[in-house]
Structures are given as C-alpha cells and as structure tokens.
Computed example of a mutant assay.
Amino acid sequence: MADNRLTASVKWVDGLTFVAESGSGHQTVLDGNSPGTAPSPMEMILMAAGSCASVDVVSILEKARQKVVRCECTVTGERVGATPNVFKAIHLEFIVTGHDVAEKHVERAVALSADKYCSVAKMLEASVAMTHSYVIRAA
C-alpha cells in the first residue's frame, strides 16, 4: 500500500524569516514581513496554485502534441481584508505561447486542470472562488 503522506519542516532563521524544507529535501525561504526578503506564506499559496495548474496544462498540451514553447501562469489573489486575512478569490490566467497551438486544446487543458487534476486548486476551491482564463500567443 502506498504511503500518501507528505512532510515538511519549517525552521526559524531570525525576525519573521523561516526556511522551509520539503520531505524530499528541497528548501525555500519565507518571510512574514510585508514586503519581506522572500515570499510570504500567502504568496507561496498563490505560487503553489499556479505551478500545480501549470504542470497540468503543459502536460496535457504536450500529450495533445501541441507545439508549446512557453507557458506562464499569472495568479491574482483577493483577500478578505480582516484577520484572518484569507483569500476569497483566486484567478489563474495562463499565457500559452507556441506554434499553431489550437484554442480547443488550451481550453480543454485549463478546464481539466481546474475541474480534475490540480490538487492545490481543488483543495482551495472549498473556501475560495477559483477562476481561470487563458491567452494564446504565437511563438
């Protein structure tokens, strides 16, 4: 039976700066100051959503044999404005650049990521309004 647990540790450096390490040994710095010297924990949530969804979109487009040369995901989060200042809405916009990339494939890839595959977005959508859009650019 597969172990479905992931682990991470977070160690205080100084001030409001921390080093987070994944169970696989990768490290990143986080900063609770605004603005700080590193991403804040809430910015990391946006980056996690964008990167998780981007993995899906690129993978799906590659399987559809689309000639993608670049995929960027711009993530915008709107917070409630009171403590706890959680996200109430997050929008992911994919900018897909390639050669003769078919809109139907990009639309399908974004929809599949949003509706089925992106673990981070699926987890967030329980309490956050998640929206998606895309732009296709010629390489």
Rank of each mutant, 00 (worst) to 15 (best):
V75D: 09
H132R: 15
T28I: 10
E93V: 00
Q27P: 03
S34Q: 15
V10W: 14
R5Q: 14
C52L: 04
H132I: 11
V110L: 03
P41Y: 11
I45F: 13
T37P: 10
S133R: 01
E62K: 15
S113P: 06
A82S: 14
S22P: 10
A138D: 15
D115G: 02
D115Q: 12
S59D: 14
S40V: 03
N4Y: 03
T28P: 01
Y134P: 08
T76P: 01
T131I: 11
M42V: 07
S133T: 02
E21R: 10
H105A: 08
V68K: 09
S59E: 13
S133L: 02
T28S: 07
G36T: 06
S59P: 12
M1C: 07
E21A: 11
F94N: 00
V58G: 04
K122D: 14
N4A: 04
E72I: 10
A38S: 05
I95F: 05
A111R: 09
G98P: 00
N4S: 06
H26K: 13
G98L: 02
A138K: 13
W12S: 09
C52Y: 07
H91F: 04
C73G: 07
V55G: 11
V120W: 01
V101N: 04
V128K: 03
A8V: 15
T74L: 14
R65K: 15
C71V: 13
H132G: 09
V69F: 12
V96H: 00
L61I: 11
V80L: 13
A138Q: 15
S22F: 06
I45M: 14
K67C: 07
A114V: 06
A138Y: 09
Y117T: 00
V68F: 08
V106T: 05
V58F: 03
I90G: 00
A20N: 03
N85Y: 09
R108G: 05
I90A: 00
E21N: 11
G15P: 04
Y117C: 01
A53E: 08
P41L: 08
H99N: 02
A64T: 01
I45D: 07
G50K: 05
A48Q: 01
L124A: 09
G98A: 02
D115M: 06
H26A: 13
S34N: 15
D3F: 00
S40D: 08
L30C: 14
A102S: 12
C118Y: 03
L6P: 01
M123K: 02
T76I: 06
E62S: 14
I95Q: 05
M42F: 12
T17P: 08
V110T: 05
I95G: 01
K116R: 11
